[in-house]
Write a protein that binds this DNA or RNA. Structure first.
Lengths: 228, 228
DNA sequence: ACATTTGATATGTCCTACATAAGGGCTTAT
DNA sequence: ATAAGCCCTTATGTAGGACATATCAAATGT
């Protein structure tokens, strides 16, 4: 696996610290003891002593887990295991400016893939109400200037994600939006598929899932045409 | 947006600490100054003083950024901005045991969506060599006992991701695998679509993209049938 | 029985000290 | 004069102690 080789080669750049080790050990500990969310954890001093590190180092590791939402702490009550917000942690590193070009492109493609695969969920869960709302969004965009068109574009596709009935997916899309926009504006051709939003709405109303997939493909074709 | 309401309601469980604030401020600082990977950062003492916090608190915040791979530190050289591994951070919280049931289901669906949308990338980038390798994997599975069949199943679908030519996607799939398995084994019906792996390979050889999408849909149908 | 106060305790924050590694400049040898 | 080797400086890594603060729980008073 080329990926693993790479990470192996690149790993020793920064020497590992005690906090790194403690973080891993804590994670293993939580898993091994099969703690469940809400369970109380030992106190800092006990953990520090058990691990043979200063409270300082331990707290650096705990701080990391706390950031990920894996634990929560209160003044006297101590620490409890919590449910991390898996997307919240992801969001912290999603900045177009610090992501390398290849990964940006990968994420751009990831959104396209999601958008295409969405059809299968949408056709399981779409309701008439959803379609009506979608149509309203599409109708509005007829006479809008450019800045508002972008907002409407986002609203339309966002509604599609919403219609998937999958909250995680919807949030994921919101997070990916800035990256997508960034890549699109890098290449400055205007992108306009042969199928527009109103067409898609019509297909949703009367067409089959296969029709919708074809429509989506046509709608996104300008983006796919950039791939190589 | 119901999601935001929820997170707003749930937020004040854990009181925010200085480290939380400093983490945000540091992130803003890095963005505002538009540092680029490799750029040197001020020393800990300077940052601590500028922020009006102890070196201890600052280090807790730095420890978080270091975990995310946003910064790297060396003994005398100081700190430099680095490129975070966006998926590495994600991986840390992807444990089926601590993710709530709804999110698990969402992730399960996410993988299905990816797998369906993959076709559009595969048909841009597939090569004869890829298809030959895929066929080899499919051939092997004819006479395998159950435990090996699962491994082969993973190999086959993994190869499909690989054929997308998108490393991020491929790694993403690897991370999602445990979750997917977990959900599948929760419901214990054996899942077998009408289209098997060899069928898919044949379609890839001679069929159109639409054919492949149909085939994929039939292959994954048992999974989709569970959705509601 | 209920409300209030008081004390104990675990986390949050700060400070100081020292270890360690690495860069920079200095000396020395060829 | 150049290169090698040494020492000094410096920024991060780790340790330990001290106090603030919030909160639970028990003791107290009505």
């Amino acid at each position: 696996m080329a990926i693993n080789d790479l990470s192996k080669d690149l790993a020793p750049i920064a020497s590992i610290t005690m906090a790194d080790v403690v973080e891993v050990k804590l994670r293993e500990y939580l898993k091994k003891k099969s703690f469940l969310p809400g369970d109380a954890l030992p106190k800092e001093l006990e953990l520090a002593e058990a691990l043979g590190v200063s409270r300082n180092v331990l707290r650096e590791a705990l701080s990391r887990l706390r950031m990920l939402g894996m634990i929560e702490t209160k003044k006297k009550r101590g620490m409890v295991l919590a449910r991390p917000d898996i997307l919240g942690t992801f969001e912290r590193v999603l900045d177009p400016l610090i992501i390398d070009k290849e990964t940006l492109q990968d994420i751009f493609e990831l959104r396209l893939v999601l958008e295409m695969g969405l059809a299968d969920l949408i056709y399981v869960r779409k309701t008439d109400k959803d379609i009506a709302e979608l149509e309203n969004i599409a109708k509005k965009e007829v006479n809008l200037d450019n800045s508002f068109r972008i907002k409407n574009e986002i609203a339309f596709h966002g509604k599609l994600y919403e219609m998937s009935g999958n909250d995680t997916l919807k949030r994921f899309q919101i997070m990916l939006l800035p990256i997508f926009d960034y890549v699109v504006t890098l290449e400055k051709k205007p992108t306009r598929g042969k199928i527009n939003h109103m067409d898609l709405v019509q297909i949703l109303k009367t067409g089959s899932k296969a029709d919708f997939k074809k429509g989506m493909e046509a709608h996104l074709k300008p983006h796919f045409d950039r791939l190589k």
